[in-house]
Amino acid sequence: METVRLGIIGAGLRSGIARYWHNPGGKSVVVGAADVSEARLKAFQEKVNEHAFITTDYHELLARPDIDAVAILSPDYLHEEHAIAALRAGKHVYCEKPLAITVEGCDRIIEESKKAGKHLMVGFNMRYMSMYQTMKEIIDSGVIGDLKAVWVRHFVGYGGYFYYHDWHGTAENTTSLLLQKGSHDLDVIHWITGKYTKKVSAFGSLDYYGGDMPNTLTCPECEIKDTCPEATLNYFTQCAFRKEIDVEDNNMLIMELEDGIKASYLQCHFTPDYSRNYTFIGTKGRLENDDVNDKIYVKTRKSNSWHEFSDITYDMKKEEGSHGGADPKICRDFIELVLYNKQPLTTPFAGRMSVAVGCAATESIRSGGKVVEISQASTASLCE
């Protein structure tokens, strides 16, 4: 195989990354797409490949012999169904995070990939962002010593626009936004520390979104759209204060990782700003990022060496491409995985473990903050 021929399942917002895969005459080309919306499919053709095969039945896409690999870009609750179907059809699979909305779902996908003998890659594009790669290299260099503690604060500005005007707002579709939005951060904590979470205790609640508005109400038809603080007429249109919303809009997690590393993760969806603030503390110093101003700060402590005389500031360079240049890189890695068996920065097991932490934390939240232990053993192996 010299060129990977891709099919896309899910022609919504995330399908914009397909343009990085469509390189006629290069190593990959997008030849088809499936979505329940004909309008989205038509728009996909206009933006990516006007000659692409399109269908509202993803089974028709998977049945095509001219497709080698499939990118699963559909809503979270459909990832398991679509990924397993694609693997059984003999296709390599790129699956957006989260891999599934349950740990059992992740295990079933991973087991299916092993049976099929096909590659499975999880879309953790934060591993491909230069800021987090730089942070990992600094920590791996040993300049702040042995890691002992991690703090992460995620301010999700526009949380309503992103998550509460559509399907994301119900536990049935997401389990929790700790899987949807938080899976990135939980994975980066695992990746940079090199350790997985063993147990978690968490608190969270639905303090701003949700309410008593009809589930069928949309912003354009609402009587108070001119004064509602969450009204939007040009994006997802379901009311952000509708009755069915049951997913926490703020969460606080405390985690114990392997080797006794302690970590905390805070997420809020009704803050006015958007940023991710990471702090890592080791035995020789502290590293902290500022993603608003594209800087990383390394502060060192007295140690009877040169470390006590200097701190370091890293100025991040701008990169081309969506998600800070990460999307072109992760798309390239998937193609090189399929063509050359070159292992990417992500792994299916890492995808499984971020979901495991999100599910455990959700269980803790909804049971009053109890400590929940996390197993690295798959549910399939436990049943053998």
Rank of each mutant, 00 (worst) to 15 (best):
K317D: 13
D327W: 08
P98Y: 08
K115I: 05
E230D: 13
R108A: 05
A171H: 04
G26H: 04
F349E: 15
V200N: 03
S183C: 09
G10L: 01
P229G: 06
H22R: 04
M121T: 06
F280D: 09
W306K: 11
E96T: 09
I8D: 05
L287V: 07
I296M: 09
S375W: 11
E319S: 07
K329R: 13
L73S: 00
D259L: 05
D35P: 10
E2P: 12
R19N: 10
R332H: 15
A380E: 11
A240R: 05
L382K: 14
V200I: 05
H184E: 08
P220D: 12
V103E: 14
A89N: 07
D259W: 04
I261E: 01
Y161A: 09
R286K: 15
L266G: 11
R153S: 14
V355H: 03
N234K: 11
W191M: 00
M126S: 13
V338K: 01
G182L: 02
T271V: 14
K302T: 00
N234W: 14
Q238C: 10
W21S: 01
F280W: 03
Q133R: 14
Y163V: 01
S275R: 13
D166E: 14
M1C: 07
A100F: 13
I8C: 07
D140R: 02
V30A: 00
E172N: 10
I54H: 01
A52N: 02
I296L: 08
F203C: 04
P348T: 12
E223D: 13
P348M: 00
G325F: 06
R332P: 00
T227H: 09
K225A: 04
S28M: 04
D68W: 08
V122T: 07
A350K: 04
K91W: 05
E373Y: 09
Y265R: 08
L78G: 07
H154L: 06
Q238G: 08
I109C: 08
F162V: 01
P214E: 06
F124T: 08
R88D: 15
V29C: 12
K299G: 10
V103L: 06
K91V: 01
T237K: 10
C106R: 03
V292M: 07
L233D: 07
S275M: 13
G142R: 03
Q45L: 00
K115V: 05
L41G: 03
S130N: 07
Y58T: 00
Y77C: 04
E60W: 06
S310N: 09
I330E: 02
P348S: 06
D35F: 05
V156E: 14
A356E: 05
D212W: 10
C359L: 11
R301C: 08
H59K: 15
T237D: 14
G160K: 09
Q267T: 13
H323R: 14
S364N: 00
A86E: 06
D311A: 00
D273G: 02
Y58P: 04
I374C: 12
D291R: 02
L120E: 02
F280C: 01
E384P: 06
I365H: 08
K91F: 05
S205D: 15
A240P: 09
L206R: 02
A11M: 02
F270Q: 09
G117L: 03
D207A: 13
D226E: 15
K195A: 01
